[in-house]
């Protein structure tokens, strides 16, 4: 009751007190809800409206309502089709590699006793590095003249590879760089799942004569199903939203071989002044994230 008194200054009447008690939680959450709805919510609604319009130039002049025309135009354009293909390969590759390394690392970290804390802290470190720095570091690692990888190849008598001139290599390195910087979160999440498993269940599995692989498949994985699902959602989200690592590493090149959807959206809106087209891509990215998250939530009961 002291809370209400603090707000009102003097003891309020019973009715006022009741009213304040009802309103109070809303006052507490108001700033959070306001920021989210005012900035994020309205932006999404505005994007949706933008994506259904066409302007005489950039976003000036009287807009014309064109329905889903912008979406149809995108799907007909070769450039968008290529971006979509690149994004889908990138997302699939990033999820596969991300899940593999986070599960592997989490299982190994879980087996450690005293040193788990230190190695976990190390494993999380790359997540704190900016996308621009990640892109720059990995561009340097694979750089043609001075990159470590080519240096090693040359030291053992091989010739260096022009990694970023080859579309397949460039996309592969992008997947590696993304996994390096973003999968530490899923590693931590899986580790938290493993730590929450009751150890007795392993003793039971041992008594039943389960091999390590069988234990992993039939005991461990089902137990961390929610964390597994969360990791899928996370990796899918970061891969679909991929933007800064690409700009710092390849700028979408060579050609358009690493131009993922978010990068295409940026070029479309800010270089070709097709803001409605960019907004349409945002809506599609959002839908992709919502659909994948909903499916994962349903099957993994996160």
């Amino acid at each position: 009751m002291s809370v209400e008194q603090g707000v009102m200054g003097k003891p309020p009447s019973a009715r006022k007190r009741l009213r304040l008690k009802t309103v109070f939680p809303y006052l507490l959450i108001f700033p959070a809800i306001f920021m989210v709805i005012w900035i994020l919510g309205i932006s999404v609604i505005e994007s949706f409206i933008l994506s259904l319009q066409r302007f005489p130039f950039f976003i000036t002049g009287v807009p014309e309502f064109v329905g889903v025309q912008n979406y149809l135009d995108l799907f007909r354009s070769m450039v968008f089709q290529s971006s979509l293909r690149v994004s889908l390969i990138f997302v699939a590759g990033s999820i596969a590699l991300g899940m593999l390394i986070s599960l592997g690392f989490a299982l190994a970290l879980y087996k450690l006793v005293k040193s788990r804390r230190y190695f976990s802290a190390l494993a999380l470190l790359p997540y704190l590095i900016s996308g621009v720095a990640i892109g720059t570091m990995w561009r340097f690692l694979f750089s043609g003249d001075v990159g470590l990888i080519n240096m090693i190849l040359r030291s053992i008598g091989q010739s260096g590879v022009a990694w970023f001139s080859n579309p397949t290599w460039a996309l592969l390195i992008l997947i590696l760089a993304n996994a390096w910087g973003r999968s530490p979160v899923s590693t931590m999440v899986m580790l938290s799942g493993l730590q929450s498993i009751d150890p007795e269940i392993y003793d039971a599995a041992k008594i039943d004569g389960c091999t390590p692989w069988k234990t992993l498949w039939h005991v461990t994985l089902p137990q961390i199903k929610p964390q597994f699902g969360f990791s899928l959602i996370w990796l899918n989200f970061v891969a679909f939203s991929m933007f800064d690592i690409v700009l710092a590493m390849t700028r979408g090149g060579p050609g358009r071989s690493t131009e993922v959807l978010a990068v295409r959206m940026y070029y479309l809106a800010f270089e070709h002044f097709d803001v409605p087209g960019g907004a349409a891509i945002l809506i599609m990215l959002l839908l992709a994230n919502i659909i994948v998250s909903a499916v994962v939530l349903k099957y993994f009961k996160v």
């Binding site: 900035i39 994020l40 309205i42 932006s43 999404v44 505005e46 994007s47 933008l50 959602i233 989200f237 679909f240 939203s241 933007f243 800064d244 978010a262 959206m265 940026y266 809106a269 800010f270 803001v275 960019g278 907004a279 891509i281 945002l282 990215l285 959002l286 994230n289 919502i290 998250s293």
Partner: peptide
């Protein structure tokens, strides 16, 4: 699940 880069257009 909002892509941050995506918000640059409306914002």
């Amino acid at each position: 699940i909002l892509p941050r880069a995506g918000l640059i257009v409306p914002l």
